[in-house]
Amino acid sequence: MKRSGPLYTLLGGLLLALFMLSLNATTGTGNSSYGGDSPGAASPAPTSSAPGKGKASPTPTKSATKSPSKKPPAKAEYAGRTADDAAAVSVSIRDGKAIAYYCDGHDAESWLKGNVEDDGSMRLTGKHGAKLNGTLAGNAVRGKVEIDKQARDFTAARAKKPSGLYRATTEVRGAKIDGGWIVLPDGRQVGILKRDGKPQKAPRLDPDTGAVMVDGDRLTASPVVP
C-alpha cells in the first residue's frame, strides 16, 4: 500500500497531460505565429478603380495656345471670273494695299482700291459708287463686286506670271489711250481699251513682254501694283 501513492501521482499527471493535449487540440485555431488572418476574419476591402470612386489622380492639362492668325501675303496677284461668267476680276496686293479691276471685255469696267486687313478682308471702292468686298481664303479672293448697282459674286485664284493685271496709259496720234487687261490663269484675256474715253474691246496683249499694238503703234502695258 505504500507504493500506491506514487502510482496515483503518476496517473494523475498522465490524466492532466491528456486533458491539456485535448484542450490544445480544441483551441488550436488561434492566431498564427506568422501573423496570418484568422479564419472568418474580414479581408481588407480592395481599392476600387471604378470611375467616380476613390481619389482620382490629377490629369495634366495643356495650356490653351491660340495660333496667331495668318496675315495676308505682302505681295500677290489674283485673277478670276464672276459666278455668272459675265466679267473678270483681278486683285493685286502689296503690303496691305489692294487695287482691283473689273472688266466685262466690252464696255463695262472699273478700277477699285483700298486696304487689306490683317484678317484678309478688304473693302475696295471706285468711281460712280463701285465697290468690292472680298476676303482672302486660302489661295483665292472671294467676295462680291458691285458695278453700276449690279452685284456679282466672284472668285479670283492666286495667279503666277504672266497671269495678272496690266494697264497702259499713253497718247497715240493725239488720242488719249487707257487700256486694262486681266490675264487669267488659263491664258485667256479680258480687257477694255478706251480711246478718248470711248470703250472698246482691247487688242491682245503679249503677257511676256507687255507689248500691244494700237492703231499700228506698239505700246507697252505694265503690271499694276497698288
Rank of each mutant, 00 (worst) to 15 (best):
A64S: 09
L112G: 06
S4R: 12
Y101T: 00
K71E: 13
G174V: 06
A108I: 12
V141A: 03
A42M: 10
V190Y: 04
G40Y: 06
K75L: 10
A221H: 01
A140L: 09
A79W: 05
N115E: 12
D153F: 10
L14R: 12
P207A: 10
L165W: 03
T26K: 15
V141E: 01
A88D: 05
L10W: 13
P39D: 12
D153T: 14
P68S: 10
Q150F: 11
R123Q: 14
G12K: 14
L7M: 14
S33K: 08
T47I: 11
V212R: 04
E109N: 11
S121E: 08
G179L: 05
K131Q: 13
A41K: 11
K194A: 08
T59A: 12
R188V: 03
V214W: 07
T135S: 11
L15M: 15
A157G: 10
S32R: 12
N133F: 06
M122Q: 09
P58H: 06
S63C: 01
G191T: 02
V145G: 05
V89T: 11
A156F: 08
T82H: 11
V183R: 03
Y78H: 03
L11H: 12
L124I: 04
N139F: 02
G187T: 11
R195C: 05
N31D: 03
R204A: 14
T27N: 10
I147T: 06
K71F: 04
R152K: 15
A202W: 01
S90D: 01
S33T: 11
V89C: 07
G105Y: 07
T29K: 10
T27H: 11
K144F: 02
L205T: 00
Q189M: 00
K201F: 00
C103L: 03
R218W: 01
S43E: 10
G28L: 12
M122L: 14
P6H: 14
A86H: 07
R3P: 07
A79Y: 04
P44W: 06
L23M: 13
P39Y: 14
G28E: 09
G13E: 11
A42G: 09
S110K: 11
L16C: 15
G126R: 09
R204G: 05
G40V: 07
E171D: 09
A79E: 02
K127F: 02
D186P: 01
Y34F: 13
L21P: 02
D196G: 06
G12Q: 12
A140M: 09
K66W: 08
